[in-house]
């Protein structure tokens, strides 16, 4: 089937439009000079200028960025280790529990994970703020990273690693010379996923954060509860643009890498 038939084309156009029109509306209205949503007051970048004056929002964005960077990096390391254990250790005592704990956060409602983590932090009498939010995000996103990396590991040709060992490489060498370069795209994908999940998270942060540590989604949430504000439109547009650029670049990178490999 190489020609696209009309019903297929319709389904594609409708589906893609449904996915993108709301985002487009948001982006469009971020350039609206009028404060009212339905009134087009002409093109303006005033909301972007207002954004730069909004210190609370900027602080929140900076905090979110820090949390996302730290938590994504920690989560990727933990996820990589977990993926190695799952894909390479065969059967070991406690494997079922381990695999269960990796899979559970993926289907667990965030309200439950958030509540549970908060109760832990309160129990530990930990000061709530940057680190509690970061640890909460690591716990959630490490599982996503583990799944992404494990998927790549399980399709990796084992004979490549065996060949390296057969040629005299110590186990550690095999890992760094063969395994790591081969799964690097998956590690990057895992990191990106962890990063964006952390940057986006509202629920876990709301539960585990403390006074003075308000993340960007928390800030956005508290403003939009009160209604649509053009400033948030502007912030959203910037965020969407950033994420889209990074994801497209990364997928091009991974694709080039895969092409070079096949």
């Amino acid at each position: 089937m190489n020609r696209l038939r009309t019903p297929h084309l319709l389904a594609l156009v409708f589906g893609i439009a449904f996915l993108y029109l709301p985002i487009l509306v948001l982006v469009l209205y971020s350039f609206n000079a009028s404060r009212l949503v339905t009134v087009w007051g002409g093109f303006s970048t005033r909301w972007y200028a207002a954004l730069l004056q909004n210190q609370a929002l900027l602080d929140a964005a900076w905090l979110s960025l820090k949390v996302a960077l730290v938590s994504a990096s920690l989560a990727t390391i933990l996820g990589l280790l977990a993926a190695l254990a799952l894909a390479r250790f065969g059967r070991f005592a406690g494997r079922t529990l381990f695999a269960g704990m990796i899979a559970a956060p993926l289907v667990m409602p965030e309200v439950i994970t958030g509540l549970a983590l908060l109760l832990l932090f309160v129990g530990l009498d930990a000061e709530r703020g940057f680190w509690t939010v970061t640890f909460a995000h690591v716990t959630l996103t490490a599982c996503f990273a583990a799944i992404v990396i494990q998927a790549r590991l399980s399709t990796l040709d084992r004979s490549l690693e065996e060949a390296a060992q057969d040629l005299g490489a110590t186990p550690l060498r095999v890992f760094f010379a063969i395994t790591l370069p081969m799964i690097a795209p998956a590690i990057l994908a895992g990191w990106l996923l962890a990063f964006t999940l952390s940057l986006d998270d509202l629920v876990l942060a709301s539960f585990t954060s403390g006074p003075g540590a308000t993340t960007l989604p928390m800030r956005i949430y508290s403003s939009v509860r009160l209604g649509v504000t053009p400033e948030i439109n502007a912030a959203s547009t910037l965020l969407i643009g950033l994420v889209a650029t990074v994801v497209v670049l990364a997928s091009l990178l991974i694709k080039r890498d895969a092409l070079a490999r096949d």
Binding site: S159, E162, A164, I178
Partner: peptide, 9 residues
């Protein structure tokens, strides 16, 4: 190796 297992990178 049967698959040759040449390191692709």
């Amino acid at each position: 190796f049967q698959s040759y297992a040449l390191f692709p990178h």
